[in-house]
Design a protein around this nucleic acid. Structure first.
Lengths: 155, 155
DNA sequence: GCTGAAACTCATTACGT
DNA sequence: ACGTAATGAGTTTCAGC
């Protein structure tokens, strides 16, 4: 796995802003010919640095106006309870992200709902009934900003 | 804003798995001609339901083996302190996500670092010095599962 | 690495059902 | 709202420099 140079980071930064553009546009933007840019992008893909590309869906436009982050503390921790919990939580469609974490909580969930009454339904009928779920903490999303993360700059 | 039908949700589900495929592949997968699929995708874009497509970068392959979620409670809350905090936190390259939330904490941050010593450096020199930052809670990411979210099924 | 040029796919429009 | 057909642009691959 050879090290990435500045051009690779420039490509990643360009693709992080808009993954829709092709090798031609990338090449023009960083002074590379189209095949050269295409080869570098393929190398980044093959190396597993670029995992894929996901859609950015507007939850609000889809009718889901409420996003809540839940911190979940398990009541009983063990091999089995972790797997049971993960399997059960994966079956809830309103759960967008399941993060197994270390710290004050055991799991962090990102949950969407149409509105607050709908969220209460999800919380009472889906989340609180999860196997092994103990303490639950909630944070309602007001606004969100996503950034590319550290890509090549000096820190 | 006309309602979405099952075919639209099928398209969103296909694109949520891999946003890289074009209208032709989408059409083949759900029994539509290429222009028909293309028109529906364009309609979803124009309606703002599809915001764009982002790269999925493997942080570990980029040398960032540690991901930490921080819950931040502001010491002083007010119009100015929110803006100051957001501006300052946006200047930290290691911060991937800034979520303004309602609840026990005021902000949730997703932070990446090369390793735990590197994270301690970010925490002490970047996070703890943020203007107005009060209590900080941390959760280290062990594993993560992302799911498309509720797309059209009956709930 | 680049250029050039195939072959192929895709995006986009036009037209008819 | 769909399909077929057609066009132009972009992508991918393979040469040779």
């Amino acid at each position: 796995m050879s090290a990435l140079d500045d051009t690779d980071f420039a490509i990643l930064r360009l693709l992080a802003e808009d993954a829709g553009q092709g090798a031609g546009a990338i090449g023009r933007a960083c002074g590379l010919s189209q095949p050269a840019a295409w080869r570098r992008i393929k190398r980044l893909r093959d190396a597993g640095i670029v995992g894929g590309q996901r859609l950015v869906l507007d939850a609000e436009a889809l009718g889901f106006g409420v996003t809540v982050f839940l911190g979940v503390k398990l009541a009983t921790k063990g091999r089995v309870s972790l797997e049971d919990f993960e399997r059960a939580v994966s079956a809830i469609p309103e759960v967008q992200t399941v993060e197994h974490v270390l710290g004050l909580y055991d799991y962090r969930l990102r949950v969407v709902a149409r509105d607050l009454p709908d969220f209460e339904r999800v919380l009472r009928r889906r989340i609180m009934t999860l196997p092994g779920a103990g303490e639950v903490e909630a944070n309602v999303l007001l606004s969100e900003e996503r950034r590319p993360g550290p890509l090549g700059g000096r820190h």
